[in-house]
């Protein structure tokens, strides 16, 4: 009965952050919107720092509904991919060095996405978290909540359905 030796914290962090970094930074549109992800254990928080190009109503001003949609969809897709990837990273099924050089796993494909705009997006940073409500072999359902200054005061939420990529080994 030999237990697996516990790895140094830096090794674990480097592996997890490296995998997340390649997942997020490999997608041009995610970079275009300037979205970053903050990781605490397996929990991700997406951050979309305010930028003028995200404005949809210059009079108010308010964030564009399309930018908000892109932000929430990105949060959902990355969150879903991460939840699958997490198991593989931890079990050693995924080569993190391959990930680091940009050989990303196939991302889930959006089937549909339904966004509720609860209040207008203010011209400041936005945050979002995704919850995978169901993750099957082929289909997954994800709910996303987005807020700005106050965590309890959502400015948008969304539910989406996704087609999972076929496993690499058949």
């Amino acid at each position: 009965m030999s237990r697996k030796r516990i790895e140094p914290v830096q090794v674990i962090k480097q592996r997890r952050d490296g995998a997340l970094h390649s997942l997020v930074h490999g997608v041009p549109y995610v970079q275009f919107l300037g979205i970053e992800f903050d990781r605490r254990g397996d929990e991700l928080t997406a951050i979309m720092p305010f930028d003028d190009k995200l404005i949809g109503n210059p009079m108010l001003p308010a964030l564009h509904g399309g930018a908000i949609a892109g932000f929430l969809e990105t949060t959902a897709v990355i969150g879903l991919a991460w939840s699958v990837l997490w198991e593989d990273i931890e079990s050693g099924n995924v080569d993190t060095e391959e990930l680091a050089v940009g050989h990303l796993p196939r991302l889930p494909k959006t089937i549909d996405f339904n966004i509720d705009y609860l209040r207008s997006g203010l011209p400041r940073d936005a945050y979002a978290r995704a919850r995978v409500t169901r993750s099957g072999r082929r289909y997954a359902s994800v709910h996303v909540e987005a807020w700005q200054d106050q965590r309890g005061k959502l400015f948008a939420q969304a539910t989406g359905h996704f087609l999972m990529p076929a496993p690499a080994d058949g």
């Binding site: 997608v27 549109y29 919107l33 399309g66 892109g70 991302l107 959006t110 996405f113 966004i115």
Partner: peptide, 24 residues
């Protein structure tokens, strides 16, 4: 536009950009 690609391997545009177009 290459800046709004969602899948770098295929070059397919991200759904978010299509959402922005449809919303507008």
């Amino acid at each position: 536009d290459l800046r709004i690609v969602g899948d770098p391997e295929t070059g397919v545009l991200h759904g978010g950009a299509v959402s922005a177009l449809m919303d507008t």
